[in-house]
Amino acid sequence: MKFAIQVNEGPYNHEASVSALNFVRAAVDAGHEIFRVFFYHDGVNNGTRYTTPPQDDINIVNAWSELAEKHSMDLVVCVAAAQRRGIVDEGEQERNGKDGNNIAAGFRISGLGQLIEAGIQSERLVVFGD
């Protein structure tokens, strides 16, 4: 079955990102397809490679990047929410004249239409948030 996942909260403030990660892993293990994971609200903070948690803490950003690489998973950070919160890729860096970018491996920044499309294309939408 084809799933879309929406993550509304940042990785270290709320359990939502961990719940989403565990759900996605279990779904993949059960042979399901993840059409897209869409990061919205503070969820966009899942997509910054500058995240540096202590050694004994889980690195949630890397966990997403690994999933993306292993399963060619589409991880999309909402552009409007990202701009508000300072999540930038190369394209956004150029467009907005920023002095750097911070998007993590495996993530891409795109519009809200990607969430709507995920809702249309997938058989199930599962939302994790506050």
Binding site: A26, A30, R124, L125, V127, D130
Partner: peptide
């Protein structure tokens, strides 16, 4: 468990998250 969570989403037609 999480596998059971995934199964529940498959067994039902949609998921409504009361955030």
């Amino acid at each position: 468990d999480y596998k059971g969570f995934v199964d529940l989403t498959v067994e039902h037609d949609k998921v409504n998250a009361w955030l």
